[in-house]
Design a protein around this nucleic acid. Sequence first.
DNA 1: AAGAAAACCTGGGTGC
DNA 2: TGCACCCAGGTTTTCT
Length: 314
Amino acid sequence: MPELPEVEVVRAGLAPAVTGARIAAVDVLDARALTRHDAASGDFEALTTGVTIAAAVRRGKFMWLPIGANRAIVGHLGMSGQMLLRSPEHPGDDRHARVRIHLEHPEHGELRIDFVDQRTFGSLAVDGMVPTPDGAAAGFSGDVTGEWAASIPTQVAHIARDPLDPAFDDELFLERMSRRASGVKRVLLDQGVVSGVGNIYADESLWAVRLHGEQPASTISKRRARELLRAVRDVLGKALDEGGTSFDAQYVNVNGASGYFAHSLNAYGREGLPCPRCGTPMVREAFMNRSSHRCPRCQRLQRRREPGRAATGR
DNA sequence: AAGAAAACCTGGGTGC
DNA sequence: TGCACCCAGGTTTTCT
């Protein structure tokens, strides 16, 4: 279940191998991996073969490799996608290998990236790029930069910046929170408000600040919303430091090693286990076709409206 | 127009 | 052993 930290681990692992590399050949083994690719713009293999990759960039859970003037290969791991960096000789007999990208790197020689994806929610696509509205870098690309930096693939343009992005607008986030009547967890999962947060880290962040996921976002005071944002950053940053979360080896980083943050989860997947804060057994509740985990004691629905906030919000 | 629900997809696990 | 069913969940699309 790759969320921001897991995707960043993949991006960082890929970066040295792809930066400056030329795509020698591309094998599309399963066209379902290209569902986000607009065939009208041309054939995926034809558009990518022969180009040179400038960098590996990420915003939230989206990743892209700038190629040429205003183009990029956009990738999303979905739920089970992996980008496996391999030598050209690797058998590559994975059951779920979808796309193979053969690279020629000026220093590292021949390499291969296998896009492997069991559940096929992930995808690759060639997409055009447009300038970012604020002119700031579109995403995180390590210490690599270039003229492509302030451009964003069109299919990622509607995605909000992620909370670890230096150009993330805290006030805009708080403003949007205050206007949404939906439960705060829904808002956290809305990639148009803040990107990179998925089901696991949403539960972790809410636990950290003792908020019930169904608490209407508009009823949360600005102060608490700030605390929540801080918690989100903390949870994502910590996971990043520890290399990402992995439970069933769905997520494997570019070197094939599983993430290992699962042991430090406080809420997610802990149904029936004691809350690390108060000892009350944690509960699991149905939510948007998935599950929410919370402490029934620490994270209660606050019925009273916060003082100083008008009934219409704002 | 916000917000909810459906659809996409496969493998592992469970109950009978 | 086999089979039906449920579950995991990010994003887009569709419907209200």
